[in-house]
Amino acid sequence: MSEKIIFTRTEGLKPAATTYCPGCGHGVAHRILAEAVAEAKALERTVAVAPVGCAVYGYDYWNFDTTEAAHGRTPAVATAIKRVLPDRLVICYQGDGDMASIGMAEIVHAANRGEKFTVIFINNANYGMTGGQMAPTTLIGQKTATTPYGRTSEEAGYPMKMAEFLAQLPGVKYAARGALHKPGLIRTAKSYIKRAFEIQEAKAGFSIVELLSICPANWGLSPLESVQKLEELMLPIYPLGLIKDEGPKKEGA
């Protein structure tokens, strides 16, 4: 009789329990990101930038070098790191407030310059760390701490589709949107991250993977109810799939 562990914690993660709320998508996003780094054999040559938001604590869990950045300035910090260290794998992890609101200038210009790092963008349709306020990604009608009557387009505009928005820029060579609430989708999301890394390593240009995530604590729902809401309300607005791949052809493809 032989025993084999067929699923275990990747060496890309430290052996630490996260402080994230039960069901939070950051956990799965961290895991597949860390697995992708480990599988790229890049744990010793990765520098990540953690955003302001819940995922600032990414550095407590990722087993690679990480720096903080001011809110929204994550792509500016990543830009300089990659310019100084062009052979390192540089990862810019952002939330919806960080990227789509306060850091809009930084992300658009980093993308437009075709900066050769990879952005992992967690879209959970609200600000998590500060207590569930409206984000640019909040859905029409969605109630948040600052849209108690539901978001209206008249007052607060429309949900921003960041992956599609950035994909229009010629400097962006890869854009995809995945989700984190089902095993199959998680596998696909990880394949997006791995492809984004290939594009970065080939120095082709900017790569972004947007990941839809539940935020049960701030949505005021159980994790399972949150999954249902995500499928019902977020998927129609934020369709999953590859949006752009202008990287070098995959081997054997």
């Binding site: 500016a76 790191i81 100084v84 200038a105």
Partner: peptide, 26 residues
Amino acid sequence: GVFLQAESEVAAINMVFGAAVTGVRA
């Protein structure tokens, strides 16, 4: 070396931050 015209003063100083993180003079 690297010269980069940033999108704003805010971005420029945060690029200095990023370069400093790697240990170079910026």
